[in-house]
Amino acid sequence: MIQLTRLNDETFTLNACMIEQIQSHPDTTITLLNGKKLVVKESEAKVVDLVTYYYRDIGVQRVLKEAGEANE
């Protein structure tokens, strides 16, 4: 889960696994797997960093890396 800020300064927690894409135009817009769009104050790079750290914390990156090595 990652904590983000809406444009009205309200913070919320988002399940990072639900993110389909992140865009900056110019506000950062996150599209979820269900099609819902969220606009946040954080930059696209910051959201990507938060998601990356989250995946590291729960061990997803390690599992994906190991799976890739097993396929070689």
Rank of each mutant, 00 (worst) to 15 (best):
I58R: 12
I30S: 06
Y54D: 08
N34Y: 04
R56D: 10
R6Q: 12
R56A: 10
Y54R: 02
R62Y: 13
V51S: 03
D57I: 01
Q21R: 14
L50S: 02
G35M: 00
R56P: 02
A67D: 11
V60P: 09
I58T: 11
G35T: 06
T29F: 04
L33H: 03
E10H: 08
T31P: 02
L7C: 09
G68M: 10
T13D: 04
L32Y: 04
E69L: 12
L50F: 12
V39I: 12
A16H: 00
H25K: 04
L50I: 11
L32H: 10
Q23H: 03
Q23T: 00
E66I: 07
Y54C: 08
M18D: 13
L64H: 11
I58W: 11
L7H: 11
V39R: 11
L32P: 05
Q61D: 11
A70S: 13
A67F: 14
Q61S: 15
I19Q: 00
T31E: 10
G59R: 12
Q61N: 14
Y53S: 11
A67T: 12
A16V: 00
Y53P: 05
L4F: 09
I58V: 15
G68T: 08
M18G: 05
P26K: 01
V47I: 13
S43L: 13
E66M: 09
D49A: 14
L33T: 07
K65M: 14
